[in-house]
Design a protein around this nucleic acid. Structure first.
Length: 196
DNA sequence: AACGGCAGCAACCGCCTTTCG
DNA sequence: ACGAAAGGCGGTTGCTGCCGT
């Protein structure tokens, strides 16, 4: 790897929200060179970001296969089922939801499901809801989801078909649509125009 | 129309694990 | 076998937009 000493200006590290320009630089660099050592990548690309920050941005937002918004009821059910099995192993859970990131699932769990669990309709204490409540809430659906999960454990995650699970009319409304954002398609087309 | 509170999301932080010299 | 560096992961925080008053 590149072991050049850092110049003083390289020590300056940007934090906070990513700009469109930074996104384009990162996408362009990865498109040309692939994902390498993230710290080296960040330096080589000329980004004043840490390798971790670049990796996170790429995995959670810039990757072309990232699906955004609209977590479907099937996905919600699967998340609940997998969480009841594994707890907060978000990255593990994310492997069974193609296009979803651990961060997105984690946020979804905290904002939608955990919030719902805290409502007084459940007699269980908040401290114990994490695993037990989720299991009991979806227990009627768990068998179907269980089969889906078990099947996926032996085949590729992408082989999962939502139809495996019965229709779900639980209390969780679908997430908001992602309209109004400058989409990844826009970014990618800009990237293609710029870089290739 | 203005203000305050709330919800959702993006990003950072710190710890743990893995890899490499 | 050991130490350092990098990667991976889960937890937490801060910002932004939306909704109700």
């Amino acid at each position: 790897m590149d072991k050049k000493p850092c110049k003083s200006e390289d020590l300056e590290v940007r934090k906070g929200p990513w700009t469109m320009e930074e996104d384009l630089i990162l996408m362009n660099y990865i498109a040309n060179h692939g994902e390498g050592v993230w710290n080296t990548l960040a330096r080589s690309a000329g980004l004043k970001r840490t390798g971790k920050s670049c990796r996170l941005r790429w995995l959670n937002y810039l990757r072309p296969d990232v699906k955004r918004g609209n977590i479907t009821p099937e996905e919600q059910l699967l998340i609940m089922e997998l969480h009841s099995k594994w707890g907060n192993r978000w990255s593990k859970i994310a492997k069974y939801l193609p296009g979803r990131t651990d961060n997105e699932i984690k946020n979804f769990w905290r904002t939608r499901i955990q919030k719902h669990m805290k409502q007084p309709t459940t007699s269980q204490s908040p401290s114990s809801v994490d695993h037990q409540c989720s299991t009991s809430q979806v227990s009627s659906c768990c068998v179907a989801a269980d089969h889906a999960v078990d099947q996926m454990s032996y085949s590729s995650p992408s082989s999962f078909t939502p139809g495996t699970i019965e229709s779900f009319d639980g209390p969780f409304a679908p997430a908001d649509s992602n309209e109004g954002l400058w989409s990844m398609e826009d970014l990618w087309s800009m990237h293609l125009l710029n870089g290739n």
